[in-house]
Deep mutational scan, measured.
Amino acid sequence: KKKIKIYIENENGEKKTIEIEVEGDIDEIAKELAKKYNVKIVKIEP
C-alpha cells in the first residue's frame, strides 16, 4: 500500500487535499474518485 495525496477542485473552485492509502493503479483510483465526487483532479503526489 502507498500513501498518496490527491489535490482536487470542486465545481465551486474550492480546493482540497485528500490523503489516502491505495493499492494498485493510482491513476485509475483517482479517476474513480473524481467521477464519484464530481471533482477535478489537480495533482497527485506519491
Rank of each mutant, 00 (worst) to 15 (best):
E21R: 03
I44R: 01
K35Y: 08
A34K: 07
E14D: 12
I18D: 01
G13C: 07
I4K: 01
I41S: 01
Y37G: 02
E23L: 09
D27G: 10
N12W: 14
E45G: 03
I8L: 13
I29Y: 14
G24A: 04
D27K: 10
D27S: 09
V22Y: 13
K31R: 14
I20M: 14
E19K: 02
K31Y: 09
K2N: 10
E14G: 06
K16V: 10
I18H: 02
A30T: 07
E21P: 01
E21M: 11
K1W: 12
V22Q: 05
I4N: 01
V22F: 12
I8H: 01
K5L: 13
T17M: 13
K5V: 13
K5G: 00
I29A: 13
K2C: 06
K3S: 09
I29G: 01
E32L: 13
E23N: 09
E11I: 11
E32F: 13
K15H: 13
I6W: 03
E9L: 09
K36N: 06
K35T: 07
E28L: 14
K5W: 13
P46D: 14
K16E: 12
K40T: 13
A34S: 10
E14S: 07
E32N: 10
K36C: 09
I4R: 01
E32Q: 11
E45M: 05
N38K: 08
K35S: 10
K31C: 09
I44V: 08
D27E: 12
N38Q: 06
E21K: 03
I6N: 00
D25G: 04
A30W: 07
E19L: 11
N38Y: 04
T17S: 07
D25K: 04
E21S: 07
K16W: 15
N38G: 13
I20L: 14
E32S: 08
K43Y: 12
I4P: 00
Y37Q: 03
K43F: 10
I29V: 10
K36D: 03
A30V: 15
Y37L: 14
D25W: 06
N38V: 03
P46C: 10
V22N: 05
K15C: 05
V42S: 03
K40I: 14
K16I: 13
L33A: 01
V39K: 01
I26Q: 03
V42A: 03
K31G: 07
A34W: 05
L33F: 14
D27F: 13
I6M: 06
